[in-house]
Amino acid sequence: MKLYGRTWTRRELEARVGHLGQIGGIRRMTLTEGREAGTDIIRVRTGAGLAFDVVPSNGLDISLAEFLGASMAWKSPNGDANPAFYEPEGTGWLRTASGGLLMTCGLAHVGSPSEDEHGANGLHGRAHHTPALHIAICEQWSGDEVEWSISGVIEESSIFGCKLRLYRSISGRLGENRITIKDRVENFGFQPAAHMMLYHFNFGFPLLDKHTEIDLPPAQSTSRDEHARLADCLRWQDPDPRCRESVYYHMLDQEALKSDHMAEASLFNPAFPAGTATKPVRVTLRWSADTLPILVQWRMPGAGEHVLGLEPSNCLVEGREAETRRGGAAGFATGRIRCVCSRDGRYRIKIKK
């Protein structure tokens, strides 16, 4: 294992600690106060500076995320609210959405509230507020490396309606500041089922400041909002309470991608806090462009709501009715299908020092 600037064998490390948790690892806990009471948390520490919370109560999404003790993600004022408080109608999603590094939007609906022949759908669907089933946690030595993983199942089902099942695995190694997310969505019903999917990554202070550089993959870009300027896609700014949110659609240029069809976006902060000093840090997001061909960008440099969303997706965020009219990339699955998040079934987040 590479750790603290050198390579160690298993026995060398075991000789120096009484418990592996002294270095890093996984710990499960339950929150006890307010609207967060009863929310399950799985805390992961890589031992190399990255720490984050996986939330089984909220669809195995990722809430708090820190590097070198400083936050990378924006947290909403709702905290990690228990999904029992979820209001599915209209924009009620906003009252309990946690923010954090990842909120999964889907499985059958993404975007603005809408209604079609399949029924009414609230903002961004139900996945983020659906507790996961069959949670499995593994932390074990493989030679001189410690590999960890968290897995579970999220189901969205209805009598006479859609029957979708998401299999999710989140994994990595101690000593590496990398998170790998592997998702597989299955239609376990006997009728076609709409499938819309968006990975709502939320970056915030202090990773974001006016010096942060934003790099996006090659794409044809448009703004949803008349007041939004495309030039703002690549810059950040200090909080301004007068700011309005802006949404941009980046339709990925498939021919410009590498042979593995993986797209990449990154944030670079030249002076990220590291204790009493600063150091340059780049956060890189990689995903499969063949299954998630759109990058939705949510720019909100307001006060309190001070967040940049980078959101790989198979659809826009106008709602299912509008997506159907557009003839977009959202899948309408027939029978028993597998919809994976990349050619090798992997969806990667990579954090580099």
Rank of each mutant, 00 (worst) to 15 (best):
R184V: 04
L102T: 03
D225N: 11
T180P: 00
G189C: 07
G100S: 05
R235P: 01
Q140F: 08
I154E: 00
S149Q: 13
Q191V: 09
R184D: 02
M196V: 07
L133G: 06
Q191K: 14
P131C: 08
E115W: 09
L164A: 07
A127G: 02
D144V: 15
S98V: 10
G100T: 04
D183N: 06
I170G: 00
A228N: 03
S158L: 09
W148S: 02
G172Y: 05
V185I: 15
G172P: 03
F188C: 01
E186S: 06
L216N: 02
S142G: 08
G122D: 03
K210Y: 11
D144I: 12
K210T: 06
E213C: 06
E155Y: 08
S98T: 15
E139A: 13
M103T: 11
I159R: 09
M197T: 13
T130D: 01
L208W: 04
P192Q: 09
I135V: 10
K163C: 13
P206S: 07
D215V: 12
H124S: 01
R178V: 10
A120L: 11
L174P: 00
S98E: 04
E176K: 09
P218T: 14
I179Y: 03
Q140R: 14
E213I: 12
W141K: 03
E117C: 06
H129M: 08
H200A: 08
T96H: 05
L234N: 14
W236T: 00
D232K: 05
Q191S: 09
N187R: 05
G106P: 02
L102M: 06
A228K: 05
Q237E: 09
P218D: 12
F203M: 03
A194N: 07
S171A: 14
L234G: 13
S169G: 05
P113Y: 10
A228Q: 02
T222L: 07
G106W: 12
M197I: 13
R178G: 06
E176H: 07
R184E: 03
R224I: 12
V153M: 06
A228W: 07
L123P: 00
L107M: 09
L107W: 04
P239I: 15
N177I: 06
P206Y: 12
H129D: 04
R229G: 05
N121E: 05
S223A: 14
Q191P: 01
D225F: 12
G99F: 15
R168S: 05
I154R: 06
H118I: 08
S171N: 10
W236A: 01
E145D: 10
E115V: 12
D144N: 15
D183T: 11
F203K: 03
L230Q: 04
N202A: 10
I154H: 02
W236L: 03
S171M: 14
Y167Q: 07
T96W: 07
L198P: 00
F201D: 00
H118L: 15
A120D: 05
G111P: 00
G152P: 01
D232G: 06
L123K: 01
A108P: 02
E176G: 03
Q191I: 08
L123G: 00
E139M: 15
V153L: 08
H200E: 00
F203R: 04
C138E: 12
